[in-house]
Design a protein around this nucleic acid. Sequence first.
DNA 1: AAGACGAAAGTGGTTGA
DNA 2: TCAACAACTTTCGTCTT
Length: 306
Amino acid sequence: MKEETIVKCTDCASRDLLHDNKRGEIVCNDCGLVLEENIIDQGAEWSVFAPEDENRARAGAPVNLMLHDKGLSTDIDWQNRDFSGKAISPSTRSQLHRMRKWQARARSSNSRERNLQNAMQEMNTMGGRLELPRSIQSEAALIYRRALEANIIRGRSIPGVAAACLYIACELAGVPRPIADVSHKLRMGKKELGRTIRQVKLKLRIRTAPKEASQFIGQFCSKLDLKPEIENAAKEMFAKIKELELDSGRGPTGLAAALIYIAALKGGQRRTQRDIADISGVTEVTIRNRYKELANALEINMEELM
DNA sequence: AAGACGAAAGTGGTTGA
DNA sequence: TCAACAACTTTCGTCTT
């Protein structure tokens, strides 16, 4: 096997890659795609001088947050055999039976545990649909645990809250997704999802930095199959807009969509407003309104581009 | 016929009294 | 708690390519 260093995202071709050695992953900073998993951690070995949890990363299997009990439990085998495979006497047998029963109860007796089991599984498949890296899924799992403990699941559906947690985890990781995109891929209402996201953030006091159009330009361009030059042009234009403070109060996805519309026209790779609207989660009307404003501010003559 | 245009009315969230 | 407000959507008839 030859050593190969990854320099570019296979999805959006971005070179902005994040090497997360603790988690053993290489993640694209633009689109959040996991390019490499299970890389061997080159960090320090177990040290008795620093016994904190974070530094225990290489002692034993990693604690997996996606399992409802963090993967720490021991199963009692169903077979009535001892370790050497011999049959066990009837007296210890009934004792084992009681132990199994007890364990089953302890693990998922209360509704909270069952809820967690359910949710973790749900988030796993959802994370797959959204192609999220494990690091983000783990973060989302953590948020869900907190949400459960804070009693905000009551009156809401498990998939609803799970989706909200995944969305928030993306935000926290600096690779936000448009709500429209998430709601579409997970087949749930945009309104409801948005509401749940807001409430979870409010109750758990999670604050996220305001999103910027630049965070969406990479994602959108790759979905539209646009040349890297166009992506760069759009990002440059955004920098100017930001300087002029014309980005305030505007939705970042709409802004990104409009910038890409202009950049694509200028770069000779025209895309219809409809196409851009579909992937960005804003309407054609918003793209129109925005790009008229922007062309005006940047003194771009759109007529001669048509 | 497809794409772009823009007016008008409606929606849901934020803000400030 | 309520009303005003800005951003965005929906809808739809019209113009342009």
